Amino acid sequence: MTLIKTLAAAVLAMGLAGGAATAASHSGAKDIVDTAVETDGFDTLVAAVQAAGLVETLKGEGPFTVFAPTDDAFAALGTTVEDLLKPENKDKLVAVLTYHVVPGKVMSGDLVDDATPATVQGSNVTIDLDNGAMVNDAKVVTADIETSNGVIHVIDKVLVPEGVL
């Protein structure tokens, strides 16, 4: 996982968090990217967003709902993560990451059991509220991290659209 840590360090060194002042001046909150950069447990997600070229998109106006996998969730994929971060796999990485994003700001109180919202990637995810909030087979471990351009819900697994990996 040293490649992931190196990419995460590079992202931070490039001043990715530099937009925080701009976002904060508008709403008092940081955007999705700056929030992820400053939150422990999202080094892999931040590196993946940078490698996929999605930083500017997720710093955009939105609003977006992001189901954000933790570093442990990415680690559970094994070597798949390092493969996804290779430049030749950028399309697959973009597909995986955009499968974690739903247009609009959906707070946990807005979730509807058995709903199947469309993701930015184009496929749908399934919301299950029967045993705690779930997105497909990923458990929501922290909900409603509000940002200036949407909301982050932390999940314990990486969501993979059918046929991508």
Rank of each mutant, 00 (worst) to 15 (best):
G132D: 10
K86S: 08
D110W: 09
G104L: 11
H26R: 15
H26Y: 14
Q50S: 15
S123Q: 10
D72F: 07
L84S: 10
A8R: 02
A29V: 05
L93Q: 02
V81D: 06
A17N: 13
V160M: 13
A10E: 15
N136K: 00
A21D: 12
V154N: 01
D34F: 02
T147V: 10
L54D: 04
E82T: 14
P161T: 04
L3A: 14
L7V: 03
F42R: 03
V96F: 01
V37W: 03
E38T: 14
I4G: 04
N136V: 04
G132I: 00
T2L: 12
N149E: 12
G150T: 13
A23H: 11
T70K: 10
K5H: 09
A24K: 15
G132R: 07
G15N: 04
V94W: 01
A8M: 05
N89D: 08
A76G: 07
Y99R: 02
L7T: 00
V154I: 06
K139S: 12
L16A: 13
S25I: 15
N136E: 10
I32E: 06
A21S: 13
T79W: 07
E146R: 15
H100W: 05
D40T: 11
T80P: 01
K59R: 12
S148K: 03
K92W: 09
